[in-house]
Design a binder for these strands. Structure first.
Ligand SMILES: [Mn+2]
Ligand SMILES: [Mn+2]
Ligand SMILES: [Zn+2]
Ligand SMILES: [Zn+2]
Lengths: 152, 152
DNA sequence: AGTTGTTTTTGAAATCATTACAAAATTACA
DNA sequence: TGTAATTTTGTAATGATTTCAAAAACAACT
């Protein structure tokens, strides 16, 4: 099982590269974010890690993510006004969020102009491009619902 | 005072145009958002309107903004992960938010390509482009702070 | 005006995400 | 080891938002 070890090492190196001391908890959370490209919330991370780390505290997840974000080791997405989502992929890309099921999908922006504005009013440090609407599954579900309503 | 009446009428028309019944409270909130281009939060709107509408309820502000957003009469910004901000300007534009003072500044996007992505995975209904960093005032304050630290 | 049904507003209580805090555990290093 | 600094933990507090049922406002009809 080289892959598992590799992820741990990658996560560890990633933390060190960003000047973050790799504690057991930080490593677990960083590894989780590198393996799961689902843009999880604090609670999703907490609940998913708990089985293998029973003593993990929700506060630690909050603390750790704050450290990771401060050091640009992960991205904090504000696409969902209800709660923060986190992204282990730090290369520039945009996101789509389904307003029905909440799923967040990566959107490549190869051609999509990434022109950061120049202004004397501010200095830009981060860019977040967010799309919202309905995902294919939810569009489909909607149609089925409508069909059911019409007794088809 | 044509201007005042004009704003009320504009707000009223705007509501009607978007299929929203213009109650006293909805009109006041819509008018507020058309006059104040500061991207206020629920609480800002609530506190600013209270003097002239003492019976206004915070819940009504929440309810009304939900209706306004649903009908695309105003924009809900998720640029601030702590709380929602609202924008009476619905023409496409981007936003900058200062991470220090929280100020939100409109960013024109005349050249900034607004290419909405095409995908079989989703249908895009809304686009939000957000920049964060430091505003000119906060950069300045920081310098002054540093100078004070250095006894200049 | 009076009656009735519908929509909207209101305030209080409940919920949910996040933050504050102080004690306990772990780690760094002399 | 011993001691200081860092990190984690659980609980309590906070703050924004939602829920909910009653009151008020409104619309349609008589
Ligand atoms: Mn992503
Ligand atoms: Mn704006
Ligand atoms: Zn969906
Ligand atoms: Zn600022």
């Amino acid at each position: 099982m080289i892959s598992k070890t590799t992820t741990v090492n990658d996560a560890k190196q990633h933390l060190i590269d960003h000047g973050i001391r790799p504690s057991v908890q930080r490593l677990a959370i960083m590894k989780y974010l590198m393996e799961h490209r689902t843009h999880p919330t604090v609670d999703k991370i907490y609940n998913d890690l708990r089985p293998s780390m029973p003593t993990l505290s929700r506060t630690t997840v909050y603390n750790t993510l704050e450290v990771l974000v401060e050091h640009d080791a992960v991205l904090e997405l504000s696409i969902d006004s209800h709660t923060s989502h986190y992204d282990g992929a730090t290369a520039p890309h945009a996101h789509f969020r389904c307003r029905r099921c909440g799923a967040i999908i990566d959107v490549d922006m190869k051609d999509l102009a990434l022109a950061t504005p120049e202004s004397s009013e501010f200095t830009v440090e981060h860019v977040e491009i967010s799309y919202t609407g309905l995902c294919a599954r939810c569009i489909n579900d909607n149609n089925q619902d409508n069909n059911q309503d019409n007794n088809l």
